[in-house]
């Protein structure tokens, strides 16, 4: 196992690369989720401003 982690002495370079790969791709996949929430709440705000809230109608 420690042999595997050492990567023949290149462990830092190899695992550093893989860390960058996973972190950047995770951000790449999570960013659209945050953006979607932002756009939906923006649109909801615009929608509610344009017309009275349906819940206020008895």
């Amino acid at each position: 196992m420690s042999d595997f982690l050492a990567m023949g002495g290149y462990g830092g370079y190899v695992w550093g690369s893989y860390a960058v790969f996973f972190i950047v791709l995770a951000i790449d996949a999570l960013a659209p989720r945050a953006q979607r929430r932002r756009v939906l709440s923006e649109l909801r705000g615009r929608l509610l401003r344009r017309r009275p809230r349906p819940t206020q109608v008895p």
Binding site: M7, G8, G9, S17
Partner: peptide, 18 residues
């Protein structure tokens, strides 16, 4: 492992596809 680069070449599996 690669005969010239040892284990360092394993970066290829993310570098080249990217």
């Amino acid at each position: 492992a690669d005969y010239q680069q040892g284990d360092a070449y394993r970066i290829i599996f993310i570098h080249v596809p990217s």
